[in-house]
Design a protein around this nucleic acid. Structure first.
Lengths: 127, 127
DNA sequence: ATTTGATTACGAAACAATTCGTAGAAGGAA
DNA sequence: TTCCTTCTACGAATTGTTTCGTAATCAAAT
């Protein structure tokens, strides 16, 4: 039994994972074209990153044809969980509540979102 | 007019900022002794980090006596805000609500905390 | 005055993340 | 086949972060 890959992607790796989580299977070029919209980097940079991610076990790839196809190997929710917990410890001294309030207090969340969070909290309380 | 220091502390710098935010004024030794409890690094490492933070404008220091006294220059809430927003974008595709639910869904928050969040959300909605 | 202990300053090593140039392989078009 | 484009592989440069050894300075104690 091999250990599960520990979800510690770097920032650049995270950008790529976002795309893979969203799209499923992707070629390097597909990922790169999306990345280019928000970022300014060369194609071989994206390629190299994805190759490193493969070495680390963050992604799998199908090399049966010339153009390789990549997909995420790490779980989106687990990765998010891990990063959020780290931030709660690192930045908010372990207080999830303080982080939540900070996150919501800055008009990032719409009224609809706030309502859905309230509903969610009610369900949490009733358990 | 000089630009405000942009709040982009590294992880190690954040550990030190936490202490400074909590304690106010500190010597390197004080910071180091607290750091040692959770981390394993030499005194000169802590010193060097704090010197770099000074160069970056993250902290101020009083050098009038031999033992320098440091204090945080960046604002705690602004820094938290900045990091949380970055995480929302980077990790949760811009959805604050998804991050909040992820943060609360994993037993990090106690019942009391959840209640206080609900109260907070009610205030937000009533504006 | 000398020693001792604590402090800062400095530089360099070790490591990690990011970027990209270049070369070579593969495949399709002419 | 030859040419052109696209792709992967590889290695190296660059930059940023973390770590710590060593030397110099200072002050207090002897």
């Amino acid at each position: 039994m091999t250990a599960a890959p520990s979800p510690r992607p770097t920032e650049s790796e995270l950008e790529i994972l976002q795309i893979l989580w969203d799209k499923g299977n992707c070629t390097v070029r597909e990922v790169h074209e999306i990345l280019e919209k928000s970022k300014d980097a060369g194609y071989t940079t994206t390629l190299k990153l994805m190759q490193i991610m493969h070495e680390k076990g963050l992604v799998a790839r199908d090399t049966s044809s010339k153009t390789h196809i990549y997909r995420a190997l790490v779980n989106q929710e687990k990765t998010q969980q891990h990063l959020v917990n780290k931030m709660i410890d690192n930045v908010f001294n372990g207080s999830a509540a303080r982080m939540v309030m900070q996150a919501l207090g800055n008009h990032k969340a719409s009224k609809d979102e706030i309502d859905s969070i309230k509903k969610y909290l009610d369900e949490l309380s009733n358990q």
